[in-house]
Computed example of a mutant assay.
Amino acid sequence: MFSIVQQDHLTVKSELSLLNQVQEWFEQFCLQHLSQLGWSKTQLDRLNLALAEGFTNAVRHAHHALPPETTIEINIYLWIDRLEIRIWDHGKPFNPDAIAEPEPGTLQVGGYGWFLLRRLADRVVYERGADDRNCLLIVKYSQEAQK
């Protein structure tokens, strides 16, 4: 069984203006820990985009009716074979399986973020925790683990 190599945690208010802070924090973590482990810039860019999508979804959708002081917690766990990002929000839960995947060549309102997350990561899970928070789990395996 693999153990956690590194981890970090960030708590921010539910404000879109904090997206840059979230992404800079993530990029700093990547520079310190992932680059030397052979993670490619493309992998890191995809993870940064997935993080941005998850964070903005929490602000825009989960917290849309909540005060901006409502916090979003983000945890990063680096394992030998993968990176896990967990984004915790306080909104009402939803069922992502109920979102229809956009058909190529058609337009639909909503659902593109969930579709994008599934394309950027190897595993995406959204579930309600025992503490009445929602957790978006984004998992990306290292290139070495995929060989």
Score class of each variant (00 low, 15 high):
Pro68Phe: 11
Val125Pro: 04
Phe55Thr: 02
Phe55Val: 07
Leu31Thr: 10
Phe2Gly: 09
Gly105Val: 07
Val59Ser: 06
Glu73Leu: 14
Asp131Phe: 09
Glu127Trp: 11
Leu44Phe: 07
Asp45Phe: 03
Trp114Ala: 00
Glu53Arg: 06
Gln28Cys: 13
Thr71Arg: 11
Gly111Leu: 02
Glu69Ile: 14
Asp132Cys: 12
Val22Pro: 05
Glu101His: 12
Ile80His: 13
Asp8Ser: 08
Gln43Asp: 01
Gly105Gln: 00
His9Gly: 12
Leu44Thr: 04
Glu127His: 07
His64Thr: 13
Ser142Phe: 00
Phe2Tyr: 14
Ala145Trp: 05
Cys135Asn: 03
Cys30Gln: 04
Ala58Asp: 06
Trp79Glu: 05
Asn48Trp: 02
Tyr112Asp: 02
Gln43Pro: 06
Ile85Gln: 01
Lys147Pro: 06
Thr56Ala: 10
Ile72Cys: 01
Pro102Cys: 08
Ser40Arg: 09
Gln21Ser: 14
Lys92Tyr: 13
Gln28Thr: 10
Leu120Arg: 00
Val59Gly: 08
His63Phe: 08
Arg46Gly: 01
Tyr126Trp: 09
Trp88Phe: 15
Arg123Trp: 12
Asp8Thr: 06
Asp132Ala: 07
Trp88Ile: 14
Trp25Phe: 05
Val59Pro: 03
Ile85His: 06
Gln32Gly: 09
Glu27His: 11
Glu103Leu: 15
Gly129Val: 08
Thr106Arg: 00
Pro93Thr: 13
Ala130His: 13
Pro96His: 02
Ala50Asp: 00
Leu120Cys: 04
Lys41Trp: 11
Leu137Cys: 05
Leu117Ala: 08
Gln143Val: 10
Asp81Met: 05
Leu116Met: 15
Met1Asn: 11
Leu120Glu: 00
Trp114Cys: 04
Gln28Ile: 15
Pro102Lys: 05
Leu116Lys: 07
Ile138Asn: 06
Glu53Asn: 00
Glu103Ala: 13
Val125Asp: 12
Trp114Tyr: 11
Asn20Glu: 15
Trp114Met: 02
Gly113Arg: 04
Arg133Ile: 13
Phe2Val: 13
Trp39Lys: 08
Pro104Gly: 09
Phe26Met: 04
Phe29Thr: 08
Thr42Gly: 03
Thr11Leu: 14
Lys13Gln: 15
Arg119Met: 01
Gln32Val: 09
Trp88Pro: 04
Glu144Met: 15
Ala100Leu: 14
Glu53Thr: 04
Ala100Asp: 13
Cys30Gly: 03
Arg123His: 15
Arg86Glu: 11
Gly91Met: 06
Gln36His: 15
Leu117Ser: 00
Gln108Phe: 07
Trp39Leu: 09
Trp88Gln: 10
Tyr112Ser: 09
Phe26Val: 05
Glu15Leu: 10
Val12Phe: 00
Gln21Tyr: 11
Gly38His: 08
Ile80Arg: 12
Thr56Trp: 04
Arg118Leu: 07
Glu84Lys: 08
Lys92Pro: 04
Tyr141Pro: 03
Gln6His: 11
Glu27Leu: 07
Thr70Glu: 01
Leu116Ser: 10
Gln7Tyr: 14
Leu10Thr: 06
Pro67Phe: 01
Ser3Cys: 14
Glu84Trp: 09
Ala65Gly: 08
Gln23Pro: 02
